[in-house]
Design a binder for these strands. Structure first.
Lengths: 331, 331
DNA sequence: AAGAAGCTTGCTACCGGTAGCAAGCGCTGC
DNA sequence: GCAGCGCTTGCTACCGGTAGCAAGCTTCTT
């Protein structure tokens, strides 16, 4: 296989200069209809299309957006990625999916994204210490950063989040109305959990009802297994009379682990013995096997907002968008 | 924010030519220790790192691999993407995640990938007609194509798949041994289904036992809802006495839909009234809520193989790797 | 008919690297 | 003292586009 055709080759074939070839491919450029026809015919014959790499180098605009992800255990990432890629592609951008892990951490990934001259970086729900970015972000020429689905505590880095305050207010108000009085919270990975603020507002709104949240389970990460393990050890060490009557899990995948342990390992009834709530509304949360009461994040609004900020249509500042409480059988 | 520093600026600061700067960043280049020290110090001060875009243009090697995905409903994509990104990043490559949909089809995506000069394209379980690629692939300069997790019927385009023949042989042999005699198959989206060959081998191995597979349900796509709907209409129109006694679903997500319909909508027992099998072994398939008997694809071996082909360490030719039957409660 | 204005085209310079040639330099050997 | 060698360094040319100036040609105005 030979290489791609270049503008120069097309120019030779069409009997014009390479700049005229470029103009035929530049909308709004000054070129006669006649020249355009000849160039396009020659381009067609040679199978020519402009080289976007060269264009990017010259324009400082790659039309690539890096998306950082560090947790692939939560199935919720998938619909988000679907929407993100679809929306960005509709805007002529393309997603570079970066797996943040111990081998390839945030600093290295940011450096790499910078070297590749991406137009923007979206930190999609990744767990990092804000300090990590504080020095880096000031470095000249870095692509703009956006945080999606977690809070950003750094001045100047905008975040697009599901409004945790509204969400937890609705949730707690529903639970208090149903008569629950001994609430507990299950959190996932420490660093991210803080940035989600769900625990904070959960306790805050129970406080308004004169009830304090004393039980806090922590799962090691956001996975079914971690959720199951955390609740298992709680149930194993807490006598029935002292147990909470409702458990708010930081997301659905933790809630599923909790539900399975309640029902299968301990033979308890949900919601009679203990109610359970999640957060995300996964496809499988709606199934009769779980029928999980949960809170749906405004996925499309969130993605639209972050994409609009990336393209510059929307001012880059933190926005919190309200989601929707989905009432089902578990609470 | 000003722009990134360039080799020329570092050169001026270090009092050498820009080529010496480049050499300081090129492993194995001919440069004195003294020069390298001075260049690296200047680079450090100016926060210089080589521009990979410019390097890519000059070397015709972007270290980017496009991964095409057209079905985000199957949670199984996520662990695959995790492994793919991690392995490729370990090899110094980066993944461009392309969402194939009606707005952005295979042809457009391939053209775009070509224009961006990616080193390779991985078609990850996408449903396309082989004819679509037949003309394109011959076009000069196209990046090499690899098919992951589905078969390629095109000469010269290698595929990395879970060995369907071995898988279905094991499955059918297990089912026949358990005494099942009226097998049915549930397939997903037509085009992809053919390329998975699961239905084919399922019928083939039952044939060896003198049993033909007469019941074929087709789901509209690979989603819980589609699986539920397909089985629902089958059960609604088929009297109990005429029903199959075991249902092989093309993947776990379809099987989950089927299981929920069996138990919740029709009050049937699994596996007594009907056994169910899936394919993939999702995290949630292992939960007590489903406890689905399924077949696990050799995810890591498959990813290793395709990555090795991309990097050229492994000869690019179709390989089928055996997975593992996971026995649980539903069959 | 001459000058002004407008459109089209080709040109130089540049984006930030890479490849490989050739000159400069120090060192060795005779 | 000089040829010969090897290492280091700078150079030209190039990757395939973009930006914007200036020349050439029409067309319009007076």
């Amino acid at each position: 296989m030979s290489k791609r055709a270049t503008a120069r080759e097309v120019a030779a074939a069409a009997g014009v200069s390479k700049w005229t070839v470029i103009r035929a491919f530049t909308p709004g450029a000054s070129i006669t209809e006649e020249s355009r026809r000849r160039v396009l015919a020659a381009a067609e014959a040679l199978n020519y299309t402009p080289n976007l790499l060269a264009r990017s180098l010259a324009t400082n605009f790659t039309h690539q957006v890096a998306v950082f992800v560090d947790d692939f255990a939560n199935p919720q990432k998938l619909p988000f990625l679907e929407a993100l890629t679809a929306r960005l592609q509709a805007e002529g951008r393309v997603v570079m999916l970066i797996n943040i892990n111990t081998q390839f951490d945030h600093v290295r990934a940011l450096l790499n994204a910078d070297q590749r001259q991406v137009d923007a970086v979206i930190l999609f729900g990744t767990a990092f210490r804000d300090e990590t970015l504080r020095d880096r972000k000031l470095s000249k020429g870095m692509p703009p950063l956006f945080v999606l689905a977690r809070d950003s505590q750094i001045e100047g880095i905008p975040a697009v989040v599901c409004d945790a305050e509204v969400a937890l207010r609705d949730i707690v108000s529903h639970l208090a109305g149903k008569g629950y009085r001994r609430p507990g919270f299950m959190a996932g990975a420490q660093v991210l959990s803080t940035a989600l603020q769900r625990k904070h507002y959960f306790a805050h709104f129970w406080g308004r009802h004169g009830i304090s949240v004393n039980t806090e389970l922590s799962a090691h990460d956001y996975s079914w297994k971690a959720g199951a393990r955390a609740l298992h050890s709680y149930l194993a060490t807490t006598p029935p009379a002292e147990r909470i009557d409702v458990l708010m899990c930081e997301n659905d995948i933790l809630a599923m682990g909790a539900l399975d342990v309640l029902r299968s390992d301990f033979g308890l009834r949900v919601p009679e013995d203990m109610a359970v709530l999640g957060f995300d509304n996964l496809e499988l949360s709606a199934t009769p096997a779980y029928s999980l009461t949960t809170y749906e994040q405004p996925l499309h609004s969130m993605v639209d907002a972050v994409v609009a900020m990336v393209t510059g249509e929307l001012e880059a500042k933190t926005v919190a968008i309200a989601g929707q409480l989905i009432l089902r059988a578990t609470a």
